[in-house]
Design a protein around this nucleic acid. Structure first.
Lengths: 221, 221
DNA sequence: CAGCATCCGCTTTGATACTG
DNA sequence: CAGTATCAAAGCGGATGCTG
């Protein structure tokens, strides 16, 4: 990227991570840990292959990413965040929080990956009956299932299947998120293609932290 | 900007503020409050006029910025952050903290504005003798002076002149910052063009919080 | 197959000039 | 002051091909 040429900490950060796709490459490595080139491509649908290679090169030169050549028989190149790269987490967190209100918007034909959602869900969800029994809820909104476990007032969220979940929520991401956020009710969600099996009371158990929506809408244009 | 087309809170934030210059426009409004178009241009040296106009239009449509037509005799258009725009401060803070270690780098021919530095200085500086008498130090590194006041263990920093400062530190921004950070000593700074008037003990009074430098260096390229 | 490099059409940006 | 107009240059997206 062309430098902004400003003696300003924010501008200097953006000189490094302000390019298109760059922060999303960091997101992938932050959310999934060490990745192969191919894994990164899968987590960044739409990126041109040469751009990914260039971003990785630039991030390596900036000390944000390092590569590790795994020896045979694996014979793969692994990319991971350096300590300096890990320090970008507060920036990613800030962007994630700010973007939460936008998750209720349309998104015709948007790509979805389960690991993109775990952070957002962790921000949003609270156990509204902390004293209740442990409950396990599985979300099926992308290729990988998402596990949500409520236990003793704490909410744990991760990518991967649950053994014998108490309920399964499946369907298009937006109505599923809307349901979990309490913006719509189950019948309305089902009309939008959401499937639910299990005790509906579980849905009352998971509540949404107030997401201060300043309004994400665009009026002009 | 072309949307990333991802159902991900981070990607959706970047759909709004990920364009080149966009976050720097927000920075200007966050640091300086309501601004006129001309003030913004001055705070964003190098931006093309049409780009600034386009970014402001996009940010307004996204609900981040609002414009206010001041009535005559002022007869100026003022741009300010909306509540939703103010919520980007954590993102700006994160980028500023991450960029602090980069402030020690070269920067041949970089532009400087005093208001860019107050946040960074506020992050860095601590009063190392909290019980000492109140001390006022003025920095002259850009058009506007920067006021640093140590009083009762607290450090206050702002743009503007001081009345009868106890010391004045002037010269190129990088050695001045290096001196305040404790990376170099006064004689070395003076060799780099820094001027200092007042009691040198004052420089021992202002200490630097540990800026965890992961290393900002580039090795390749 | 993993990890790129090359080529090409299109979009965005940069620099400057001009206008109500 | 607050923009719009213009146009060259750089960056990006998509396809394809190469190499270990």
């Amino acid at each position: 990227m062309r430098s902004y040429g400003e003696y300003c900490a924010i501008a200097k950060s953006l000189d490094v991570v302000g390019d298109r796709w760059t922060l999303l490459v960091v997101r992938e490595l932050a959310l999934r840990g060490a990745c192969r080139y191919t894994d990164l491509r899968n987590g960044l649908p739409g990126i041109a292959s040469n751009l990914l290679a260039e971003r990785l090169r630039d991030l390596e030169a900036a000390g944000v990413v390092e590569r590790e050549e795994a020896p045979p028989p694996v014979a793969a190149t692994l990319f991971r965040l350096t300590a300096r790269g890990e320090e970008l987490r507060p920036v990613l967190d800030g962007l994630m929080r700010w973007g939460l209100p936008l998750m209720t918007e349309q998104g015709e034909g948007e790509a979805v990956r389960s690991h993109w959602l775990v952070g957002a869900l962790a921000q949003m969800l609270v156990d509204e009956q902390p004293g209740g029994p442990a409950v396990a809820l599985e979300l099926q909104v992308a290729a990988e299932p998402i596990a949500i476990e409520l236990r003793g007032g704490s909410v744990e969220i991760g990518v991967g299947p649950l053994e014998g979940p108490d309920a399964i929520l499946s369907g298009p991401p937006r109505p599923v998120m809307g349901l979990l956020l309490g913006l719509i009710e189950l019948p309305e969600a089902e009309a939008d293609g959401v499937g639910f099996t299990g005790d509906p009371a579980i849905l009352d158990r998971v509540g949404a932290r107030a997401v201060s929506v300043g309004r994400g809408a665009r009026d002009g244009e």
